[in-house]
Design a binder for these strands. Structure first.
Lengths: 226, 226
DNA sequence: GTCATCATGTAAGCCGTTACATGATTGC
DNA sequence: GCAATCATGTAACGGCTTACATGATGAC
């Protein structure tokens, strides 16, 4: 999971460990604070497996891509400033390799065992790197899981009448949240499908109608990289 | 965390490992499927530390308390049936001790490091065993955390404009969920406070007004054990 | 020159998992 | 008698944490 997150960040631009940690915290929100004790070993593993390579920080090759967020551009500025000065020794900047991109795609797409909220969230945050069908699969898999959870929660609520008030309130609240999650997913799924319909690809389940109410869908298509 | 859950279940009634696993899955919903590889060692630890004791299954001492849920009563029936027959050798039934109750209270009340959703949910499910002030503390601590998370999420959304659509949708949805969680907590907190006000205890922050709209509060006071 | 922050790393441990091994009980 | 389930346990490992150790850079 951590490695997936790291590779995902590096798809966008070269970064060093400390900065990766910040992005994970501030941008992705997962791993509210990954510890260095897990971050650096993960980077070492990735380097050993050839997924990333360390480039001794000088600006010669740093492309400063315009893909990123504001904070991304701030970080780019910072490294530019460094370049002018003196290589900022001690900083180990990593770049993703072709092998890394391959690994990333595989990690992102392959069936995750316990597709918990964290794992799903992480994958969704990188959904732009997935081919459309894989994106749809991700969303639908998650939907199925939530549906299943809901089904079981309801069975419990129906089956045993006498739960204590706190447990009961918790279960009701959780159920409600799950329902909302599902309808959110439905909006995302609809948006994906309508994009399928727009692109005349090898997809025959067109669902021509139903694309009308998509203006309010949760995916705002004014974004880039789509 | 697992030990807390186990002790909590044993507060209610004696159980054996296999049954504990089922309760964890069906009733509490946490540890969707605790593995035996963690459950049994946990029970051993608890036994070694004197928190629980194994009683060689015969019905002599099994009180079959009326505290439980339907499934609880089903389980009780089952063990009664067993009792009539022959001690169901190989089944190791555990009972909580006074030391165990002490440990449980301590685990339940003491500051949890990363009070994540799981930990909070578990504690709330056992809130009936907490003294009122501790209960209130639990709720307010959680509220503070969610508020903080919200604050940070908003800072990110405001700060960096160009997030990709999927990440953005995820963040918006998460933010919305957190807001709902907070207002749910507010209802619980209000209900707690109004119960404080009703009981003339050593609490002077009475907040006499505001008890009016509590009929709709999430804690349904028709429950038992309150 | 010293303090906060940036930056990288190692070691020990926690808390859970999967996989494996074993045997009793119940239903048919 | 045989299969499904109940029931307990061990071993190896996974992935993350905290605590510890070290040093460079920048601000004042």
């Amino acid at each position: 999971m951590l490695e997936l997150a790291i590779l995902g960040l590096l798809e966008d631009q070269e970064l060093h460990g400390y900065e990766i940690r910040k992005r994970l915290r501030d941008e992705l929100g997962f791993f509210s604070n990954v510890s260095f004790g897990s971050l650096y070993p993960a980077l070492s593993r990735l380097e050993r497996s050839g997924a990333v390579e360390a480039i001794d920080a000088d600006g010669a090759d740093t492309p400063v891509p315009m893909t990123g967020s504001l904070s991304g551009e701030r970080a780019a500025m910072r490294s530019t400033r460094t370049t002018a000065g003196r290589g900022r020794r001690g900083r180990k900047v990593y770049r993703i390799t072709d092998e890394g991109r391959r690994q990333f795609a595989e990690l992102l797409d392959r069936e995750p065992g316990p597709d918990d909220a964290r794992s799903f969230g992480l994958r969704l945050a990188f959904a732009r790197y997935l081919p459309p069908q894989a994106r749809l699969r991700l969303l639908e898999r998650r939907r199925t899981q939530l549906e299943e959870r809901l089904r079981r929660a309801r069975a419990v609520q129906a089956g045993s009448a006498r739960l204590d008030p706190y447990t009961r309130s918790l279960m009701e609240h959780t159920t409600e949240s799950t329902e909302r999650d599902i309808s959110w997913l439905d909006r995302l799924i609809d948006a994906e499908r309508s994009r399928f319909a727009a692109t005349p690809a090898a997809n025959h389940t067109v669902r021509a109608a139903g694309a009308a109410d998509l203006s309010a869908a949760a995916v705002h298509t004014e974004g880039d990289t789509l």
